[in-house]
Simulated scan of single mutants.
Amino acid sequence: MRTVALGVAAALVLAVSACTSEEPETFTGARLDQPYAAPTVELTDTDGAPYSLAADTDKPMTVVFFGYTHCPDLCPLVMNSLSAGLNRLDEDDREQVDMVFVTTDPERDDAAALRDYLDGFGDGYVGLTGDLDDIVAAGDPLHLYVNDGKRLPSGGYDLGGHSTYVLGIDEDDEAVVVWNQETSAVEFATDIHLLLSED
């Protein structure tokens, strides 16, 4: 029995080693040669306090995603990959990163809905809402498309789509990197670590 247990343990070590060797060592996001200035428009966080992506993002890296809690597919896909990527960071790296989720559906995403949604992905995520015009204004300098949602006769909403990019804002209040919806947890973690290591 001991021999079998040792064999299983050895197999697990080899499997972990194989997974580790597959992690990318190069940057997979898109670095911005001309960074986007973080918007100064004030939105509202889930505690009811004003929050600006320019004034209140003081950590070395703030990861920003625009989405909505009723999104059936792409938003949870991106958020799962992103939260799993943040969980892969070591403690030192993780303390240097904030995650901000900006709703594109403020009519339904009030503070309570945002808080409940984000707590399902991780601790300490910042959720922002506000007037739709302000949310559109916040997305514009980041080149993020936010569509004005329309109520359907069925009672649902047609948001018509929104950008599914994730941006990384540095401590100089500039978006310096963009990730697409296909970025994996490993790629998020690797890229964020590389960005933090450059400072």
Rank of each mutant, 00 (worst) to 15 (best):
L6H: 09
A11N: 04
L12W: 14
A15R: 05
V16N: 08
T20E: 13
F27L: 14
T28I: 06
R31F: 04
R31I: 07
L32K: 01
P35N: 08
Y36S: 09
Y36T: 03
A37C: 05
P39F: 08
T40C: 05
T44N: 01
T46R: 02
Y51N: 02
Y51K: 08
S52F: 03
L53Y: 08
L53Q: 12
L53S: 11
T62P: 06
V64C: 06
V64L: 03
F65N: 04
F66I: 11
H70F: 14
H70W: 13
P72M: 03
C75W: 08
C75Y: 09
C75S: 09
L77E: 12
L77P: 00
N80E: 11
S81E: 15
S81C: 08
A84S: 14
A84K: 07
A84W: 01
L86F: 04
L86N: 02
L86C: 02
R88W: 01
D90F: 02
E91C: 00
D93V: 00
V97L: 04
D98T: 03
M99L: 15
F101Q: 11
F101P: 08
E107R: 13
D110I: 01
A112D: 15
A113P: 05
R115K: 13
L118V: 08
D119G: 09
G124L: 00
Y125I: 11
G130H: 09
L132M: 12
D134F: 05
I135V: 14
V136N: 06
G139Y: 07
G139I: 06
P141F: 06
L142K: 11
L144G: 09
V146E: 06
K150E: 15
P153N: 12
G156I: 01
Y157S: 02
G161K: 10
S163C: 08
T164C: 01
L167D: 06
L167C: 04
D170H: 03
D173L: 03
D173N: 14
E174T: 12
N180I: 07
N180L: 11
Q181K: 15
T183L: 08
I192T: 06
H193G: 05
H193L: 00
L195F: 09
S197W: 02
S197V: 00
E198N: 11
D199S: 12
